[in-house]
């Protein structure tokens, strides 16, 4: 990763143009052509730095539901439960964390009602209580990172 890659990451975590030739439109300030910019983004994706290039959706405004859930999983069952949780396409990410509640995952669903189904199924199939902690208020959702 060089300075141009860092500039791409720092300037393109939002505000990508929605016009007929968007890469061409934003390449110049970076000192690149549209083709060069696309090649660099492709390389950053291949290298795993960029997970996706495109829209970040607002689940609730699409009519869907989003929640953070936590479970207290016995250590000896951790991998088995993680595998089951991760098998749901509605589970967007899942982290082990240092706490009695040691598994934390985000469930994002498109249809209202599906969230409750997923959480109930996980609870029934694992026998471990699932704590549902949907947001009550949102103060900041930037989730941007400086390279």
């Amino acid at each position: 990763m060089d300075d141009i890659d860092r500039a791409i990451i720092n300037s393109l975590q939002g505000g990508f143009p929605i016009c007929d030739q968007p890469f061409g439109a934003i390449a110049e300030p970076l000192g690149l052509t549209g083709t060069q910019l696309m090649a660099r983004i492709r390389k950053l994706k291949e290298d795993g730095i960029i997970s996706r290039f495109g829209p970040m959706w607002h689940a609730e405004r699409m009519g869907g539901e989003l929640t953070l859930s936590a479970m207290k999983v016995p250590a000896e069952r951790f991998d088995e439960v993680a595998e089951l949780v991760n098998s749901y396409p509605e589970v967007a990410h899942n982290y082990a964390r240092e706490h009695a509640l040691n598994m934390w995952f985000v469930v994002a669903t498109e249809k209202p009602g599906r969230k409750a189904e997923v959480l109930a199924e996980i609870e029934a199939r694992t026998g471990v209580e699932v704590h549902d902690m949907p947001k009550i208020q949102e103060f900041y959702v930037g989730l941007r990172f400086e390279a």
């Binding site: 939002g14 829209p55 959706w57």
Partner: peptide
């Protein structure tokens, strides 16, 4: 896509990084 962005269905549009891989 513009309508979905203006309607807030798209929160933002661009690079989504893997923070771990970014350091």
């Amino acid at each position: 896509i513009q309508a979905m962005r203006d309607g807030g269905v798209i929160r933002r549009f661009g690079i989504i990084v893997r923070h771990h891989e970014l350091g």
